[in-house]
Design a protein around this nucleic acid. Sequence first.
DNA 1: CGGTCCCTTGACAGACATCAACTATTGTGG
DNA 2: CCACAATAGTTGATGTCTGTCAAGGGACCG
Lengths: 245, 245
Amino acid sequence: MQADPCRVTLTELKNNCSNCNLRDLCMPVGLKPAELEQLDQLVSARRRVHKGEHLFRTGDSFHSMYAVKTGTFKTVINNADGSEQVIGFQMTGEILGLDGLGAGQHMCDAVALEDSEVCNIPYDSLDDLSQQFHTLQMHFHRIMGREIVKDQSVMLLLGSMRAEQRLAAFLVNLSERQKARGFSSRDMVLRMTREEMGSYLGLKIETVSRTLSKLQKDALIRIEQKNLSILDTAGLQALATGRLH
Amino acid sequence: MQADPCRVTLTELKNNCSNCNLRDLCMPVGLKPAELEQLDQLVSARRRVHKGEHLFRTGDSFHSMYAVKTGTFKTVINNADGSEQVIGFQMTGEILGLDGLGAGQHMCDAVALEDSEVCNIPYDSLDDLSQQFHTLQMHFHRIMGREIVKDQSVMLLLGSMRAEQRLAAFLVNLSERQKARGFSSRDMVLRMTREEMGSYLGLKIETVSRTLSKLQKDALIRIEQKNLSILDTAGLQALATGRLH
DNA sequence: CGGTCCCTTGACAGACATCAACTATTGTGG
DNA sequence: CCACAATAGTTGATGTCTGTCAAGGGACCG
């Protein structure tokens, strides 16, 4: 199985990490000018992925990681029995594809939730460059470390929270990530369906719907289709961290 | 907060990865003799940790990773509301402490489940050596990639399996890891309590106990205190992968 | 040998899943 | 641009799995 180039447009636009407005969030954090220039060489191409299309699939051989330039993705694991589960949502500035490092092939599907664009980070080149620039290597390790910690906090969520708490924690997390990107932490658009939320949170779609309704009734949020407003940040946070009930 | 040397014995025994019988499982996989020798220099000290003692704690600054030489550990996350959850069990040859890479401090507690011994892998040294030996760097990345994939498969378990399936998957996983270490995949000793199992699997202790009893009633396993025998590997596997019910 | 911790089992309750019906929204082709 | 179909979301009724509460037995340790 190969990365399907069929519907995915590969745009050979030159990237420029140096000037990218994501450089404080993404790969180049803390690099010196000379190192940044090298990184620019490495991150050579961007790639457009339309809504619903795959960036990569389970089993695709691993050559590259991807930084989300614009848009949103979901990553999905396919279970042995045919069922699938969303294991993450990636937004602007976040890195996709680290799952391929272990076995040399991707272990999940990455699908665009809206028309999106990613920067290609070829692993071999990053590897080589890491050998020259210690800062880059350290930063790469830090990114992987954060990925591990992030996954573990999801394990905590799935293992020990109830539906309302899971939703609250999820929304607070999205809000914080929006804020870190300079967007409103109060109003946002949920790019995923209720079902995808549920899959990620280990809940059925009906439970997601009911719980969102309840959060709205309790005046913590206002939700209208995909448009979310957080009305009571402190209250939602308190719910998420289990300081209530 | 510092690593507490109080009760943990630091033995300055010289390690020898070259001769270690774990070298096919652990850090040195696939290294050449010259590289192995360098690794021997790096992995300088071993450390004994008695049952119930901490190898590191949440908040300890991150200097080193650890390879389990003998024994078993659990890693535990402390939630904001005081509750805690087991997020992993580490056995011989497995690496502990990768969670510290992200923020420079450990994000979980590591506790010995029996008298154990670990090899110290100082991060700075590994980092330096990785710059010299590409093989080592690649191997380190692979280890981190596997950690990420492992965590994601636990997310799958917690998000979409029912109690019986979780236990089955857990026992199958333990069995496979035992086998990879040259031990019986049929008979083993569960080093953790029912409560720790439950915490890891997102189940209460009563459910763990009941479910184990049911697996025994169905002649899939035989369990007597901490001693487990797998009677029907295929059946357990089928249950774990959801090919039944 | 006694205390503590660990485990098991039963009865009951509660949270979430399932089933079902209905509405709203999005996408498609004429 | 409208009409229709397909997809997405909401809400109610009911069922089931797991959690909670409770009691008691057994193993381990000092």
